[in-house]
Simulated assay, not measured.
Amino acid sequence: MSSTRGLRVLKAIEHYVKTKPDRFDTMNIFNKMELSSPSNGHLRGSFTVDSSMCNCVNAMHGGYITALVDTFAAYAYVCDEKGKLAWTTSMHVNFLKSALKGEKVTIEAYPLKSGNQPVMEAIIRNEAGNVLVKGTVSMQAGQGTIQEMAKAVFQFDFDEKSKL
């Protein structure tokens, strides 16, 4: 179930995609998927693997997968009521099975630990529900200036709860 903040974050991402279409995450990730279920640190997306995501044997490229895990962890964290814009400090990705060009997959990210140093997990599954990738992302929430810069780009105050 989506939360009010989660839905507002989705609108902020839509604004970001429209106003900054040339950024890595907008051009390569958000423009290629349907986002859903933003709530309490959770975010889900689904997409069909296309050739721009693949290596030479038409399997989803490990670099692309890693970018998905990183991006979804960050945006899932800001869907949390106390979430702020954060950056990755470390990441571990387990590549368990391949996704091939033309397959529909889903990615879901959610918190393992909250706070200013959250730990997020992201899981990529195929249509049958098989886990293809499991990633764990440790992050550091940005303070002051970073939150203000993000507010200007997204037209959304990720740090709104700390000001109440």
Results as ranks from 00 to 15, higher is better:
121 E>M: 14
4 T>D: 12
134 K>M: 14
75 Y>E: 06
152 A>Q: 00
26 T>F: 10
82 K>L: 10
8 R>S: 10
73 A>K: 08
86 A>W: 14
56 C>R: 06
154 F>M: 09
106 T>S: 14
99 A>G: 15
140 Q>H: 11
2 S>V: 00
98 S>H: 11
160 E>Q: 02
124 I>Y: 02
34 E>H: 12
143 Q>L: 07
57 V>G: 03
92 H>Q: 15
61 H>N: 15
100 L>H: 15
118 P>H: 08
65 I>S: 13
93 V>S: 08
20 K>V: 02
46 S>A: 07
11 K>P: 00
67 A>N: 10
122 A>V: 13
7 L>F: 00
138 S>D: 04
114 S>T: 11
30 F>I: 05
140 Q>Y: 13
107 I>V: 15
78 V>H: 09
130 N>S: 09
151 K>F: 02
10 L>P: 00
148 E>T: 02
15 H>G: 06
44 R>V: 11
102 G>A: 13
3 S>K: 02
82 K>Y: 05
117 Q>D: 03
115 G>F: 03
5 R>M: 04
40 N>Y: 12
125 R>A: 03
126 N>R: 10
10 L>C: 05
161 K>M: 05
48 T>K: 14
23 R>F: 13
107 I>A: 15
50 D>G: 14
74 A>H: 12
63 G>S: 13
155 Q>E: 11
26 T>R: 04
59 A>C: 11
143 Q>A: 11
84 K>W: 04
17 V>S: 07
145 T>G: 02
131 V>D: 10
76 A>Y: 09
73 A>Q: 08
19 T>M: 04
32 K>E: 13
72 F>E: 04
161 K>G: 00
20 K>Q: 05
157 D>W: 01
14 E>S: 07
22 D>H: 04
153 V>I: 01
6 G>P: 00
51 S>F: 14
114 S>W: 03
49 V>H: 10
99 A>L: 14
50 D>P: 06
34 E>I: 14
136 T>G: 04
33 M>Q: 14
115 G>I: 02
153 V>S: 00
50 D>S: 15
110 Y>D: 10
133 V>E: 03
45 G>C: 13
33 M>R: 11
84 K>S: 09
40 N>E: 15
3 S>T: 04
9 V>L: 11
158 F>T: 01
120 M>N: 09
129 G>W: 04
22 D>G: 01
162 S>A: 08
69 V>N: 03
38 P>V: 05
112 L>T: 12
35 L>W: 08
91 M>I: 15
104 K>P: 06
60 M>G: 11
43 L>N: 06
164 L>Y: 00
18 K>A: 07
69 V>Q: 05
54 C>A: 09
65 I>C: 09
138 S>M: 00
22 D>S: 04
132 L>D: 09
85 L>P: 00
142 G>R: 00
58 N>Q: 07
